[in-house]
Design a protein around this nucleic acid. Structure first.
Lengths: 231, 231
DNA sequence: CCATTACGCTACGACTCGTAGCGAAACCAC
DNA sequence: GTGGTTTCGCTACGAGTCGTAGCGTAATGG
């Protein structure tokens, strides 16, 4: 995943895969103990029992290293079929919240996102190794819900894409804000309430794809909501 | 707001209010040009035409200085009465998005939030000078909507508090995620879609305050939605 | 006039950064 | 084996930042 193989190397001493793992693990350890700002590559090198130069040969700098170290935390995200869209959402949101609650994710993720506002390459790295993996779950859950009949099949593909993006920003944003800014746990009770709001909102919005009205009024259509569920 | 008057000082040379303003303005300027990571207090001092020691006499460090500098950006947030809850939400979300789109807010805000995960005092400072000011708008908008009859009067005060917290995390989180992570503009079209989902979700959720069910099923009640609006 | 506090300036040790240079180690092709 | 190639660990280095101390000066109140 983070193999920085520049080109299909011909010969020479191969890079130690163990060193990669040790460096990333040491980075997470340092994130827990020191946090982002006090984390130094020299310290990571010591923890990983490698030379500082070895790290610089593989990663451009602290930003990229932390992105890869944090990205591995999200590898465990799964979307088991829990029977209903609501249950699926609650399950994956709870997983996401559990990862975000870990100190290495907290202090590392937001810091690199902040840095990415002035570094397009870094943002692309975050997108590829963290964000896209999360967004794929949204797509998967949506497809599953369509199979169940809980959501109508996508009519306009572009509209569907916008909706997925919206869902993703709402879900990930809400959990992140709850965890990091409000500094309160995204526990089961909160996730239940959040899922209810999200689901009702999406179901209601799906009948009125778009409109020029300044929003408001329309509402009656919301009755055709979360069909399915506890059948 | 950022007056760091330790105690009601008796005598001596008073602190220059102009210096405070110059330092905060210089901080924002440096955030735009350099970003968070390359911003140094020495540079800020030069830009503000003050001595570096003057900054250290007023702020503990870079984190707190940036919090105060960014906080001033949110002073302009207003909640004019636009007639409907939907319009009110859209208006304030657009304002919020406009502030977040500014580079000094982007690079500064997320960085201090990241730091606040390991610094309780810093988080409290952020809460007091930035977050609470935003949350007050949610309360104000809710009260206004209740007056209009768009939302039922709060029955259980604790339940109402949880709802306000949820709304706040969803709104602020979604806009932040859209702007910083997805790196796409929270323009009028996006805000319209977001408001529609949020409003339908809240209206639908308001009849079924809470339940032990794993969510899903319930939906019919959603018809008693956004009453009022374009009367 | 005097006590008190803020200010500008200089200088300082401590620390981190990212790189360069070296010899040794590990791999491949022959 | 032997030679070529790449990585590794180690040391050392200049550059830059941090946060503080010390000093003389400026501005206020009693």
């Amino acid at each position: 995943m983070q193999s920085r193989t520049p080109v299909p190397r011909a010969s020479g001493r191969p890079r130690s895969a163990a060193a990669d793992a040790a460096i990333l693990a040491a980075t997470r350890e340092a994130l827990v103990e020191l946090g982002w700002s006090k984390l130094t590559l020299g310290d990571v090198a010591t923890r990983a029992a490698v030379a500082k130069t070895t790290i610089y040969r593989r990663w451009p700098g602290k930003n990229e290293l932390v992105v890869d170290a944090v990205a591995e935390l999200f590898d465990e995200l799964r979307l088991p079929d829990r029977g209903t869209l609501a249950a699926d959402i609650e399950g994956v949101v709870l997983q996401f919240a559990a990862i975000l609650a870990r100190p290495e994710a907290k202090s590392g993720l937001m810091a690199v996102v902040a840095e990415s506002t002035r570094d397009d390459a870094l943002r692309e790295r975050i997108r590829a190794s963290i964000v896209d993996r999360q967004k794929r779950l949204v797509l998967e859950g949506r497809a599953r819900a369509q199979t169940r009949g809980e959501l109508p099949p996508e009519s306009d593909p572009e509209e569907a894409s916008r909706t997925v993006d919206l869902i993703f920003d709402v879900v990930a944003g809400a959990v992140v804000h709850r965890t990091l800014v409000s500094a309160e746990p995204a526990d089961e009770e909160w996730v239940r309430g959040f899922t209810r709001v999200l689901l009702l909102g999406l179901a209601g919005a799906s009948d009125t794809p778009n409109s020029a009205e300044p929003a408001g009024s329309r509402a009656a259509g919301a009755a055709r909501v979360g069909a399915g569920g506890t059948p």
